[in-house]
Design a protein around this nucleic acid. Structure first.
Lengths: 221, 221
DNA sequence: CGATTCTTTATGGGAAACCGTAGAAGTACG
DNA sequence: CGTACTTCTACGGTTTCCCATAAAGAATCG
């Protein structure tokens, strides 16, 4: 079993009971951090002192407070941690349920496991740790299914960009200028229109407002 | 101090450590539920057997699973609980940070306290319970401030309705028909336009897409 | 290389949204 | 009752968006 794990979690109740759960699993004195920066620092110290952590278990959202932080959320922490220590295993423990967000964690950040905070999460966490220790990923089938069902349309980068620009207040007409300035292809208004129209047709939406609402719910933007 | 409290929380880690925290406060055997329906049932039993709960501490979001439930989230639970037992004190313990949602909890549901799951939540929870026991509300000033700062514009019911209709795919032009059918005033397209325009001017938004994104982030829709 | 297919771009007509104006209806108050 | 004020409604001109069509350019494949 893992010998040294690090917990990054700002909810005090959860942080404490996670620590206790690990001690019950025979992992003594798991590292614990309430801030992302704090967690990264501990990881770097672990590397430097020749006692690197084997597993990072982290939440995604961390509350902002008076202490200004470099890393503002779990995704940034994971990216920074992996850069510092590429072989570090990462298990995300979060209440997040947006399909697109969870999918990105596996696809882009290459996490080793995801457990949703919910009923029976303590058993799932144990299973996940075991799976990861054995070298396999832990991607619960119910979440995988939810992603498939809900994420009917596979948005590409370009589409996500124009949707994000719209949601930031750019008008459709202004978008071609932005694309030209940033040398992003395609650039024409026609293409922007066509992509938006295609998405709306496939998903059965009748206006941009509905599309924005959908993307917000799914965590796409 | 309270003699009987009920915990409604589906995250196992949190549920267990909440129970432990109450026992440390001298409240023996706090009730505990992992489903909203289960919580309501326990409240009703408490009334019937002459041993009603004094305090309900509940999360807002509950995971859906194979067990089909009548009540799907904490807000519905609170409403139902208050209907069954109007004098029940309610403390919400959630990770929710959308200003509009928290505000509604106090304004519409009349909850007695709100503690956000975050750093130092265990101390805040103790403070909240004490405040509520003494008969005053627990509405942390930092949250109150965040609501004031972020919620620059006070949306009225009519405005929220038309924003919601837009986000559900109704075109601006179709909305007057809907308003007429449901006998909601004002009904004219002009009024719909005028309200939307006013909101966007005040908030400095340039299109409906940006407005929808904002309302989603704030929890207004 | 040519043929096919897909994507990007250009264009224009029609629909919807935007915006200002003006009149009608409702409300508050002396 | 009249005046001032606000809100709602109706209308028209302008802009933006929507959508179909067609041409130009890139990718694939025999």
């Amino acid at each position: 079993m893992f010998k040294s794990v690090l917990i990054a979690e700002d909810q005090e109740f959860v942080n404490i009971s996670l620590r206790k759960a690990f001690e019950d699993l025979g992992i003594r004195e798991p590292g614990s951090a309430y801030y992302c920066d704090e967690a990264l620092k501990k990881i770097k110290i672990g590397i430097r002192t020749g006692r690197p952590y084997e597993l990072l278990i982290t939440d995604l959202s961390f509350e902002e407070d008076h202490c200004v932080q470099e890393l503002s959320d779990g995704m940034e922490l994971i990216a920074a941690a992996r850069q510092a220590q590429p072989d570090l295993k990462v298990l995300v423990f979060s209440a997040e349920d947006k399909p697109a967000v969870i999918e990105r964690l596996f696809a882009v950040l290459g996490i080793n496991g995801y457990v949703r905070k919910s009923r029976g999460d303590s058993q799932k966490l144990k299973d996940a740790i075991e799976s990861i220790y054995k070298g396999s990923r832990y991607f619960p089938s119910d979440i995988r299914q939810a992603i498939k069902q809900k994420n009917a349309y596979a948005f590409n980068e370009f589409e996500i960009l124009i949707i994000r620009l719209l949601s930031q207040g750019k008008t459709q007409k202004e978008i071609p200028c932005y694309l030209q300035e940033n040398k992003i292809y395609p650039q024409s208004l026609s293409s922007v229109e066509k992509h938006l129209n295609n998405i709306k047709t496939v998903l059965g939406f009748s206006n941009n407002e509905q599309l924005i609402a959908y993307c917000k719910d799914m965590g796409i933007i």
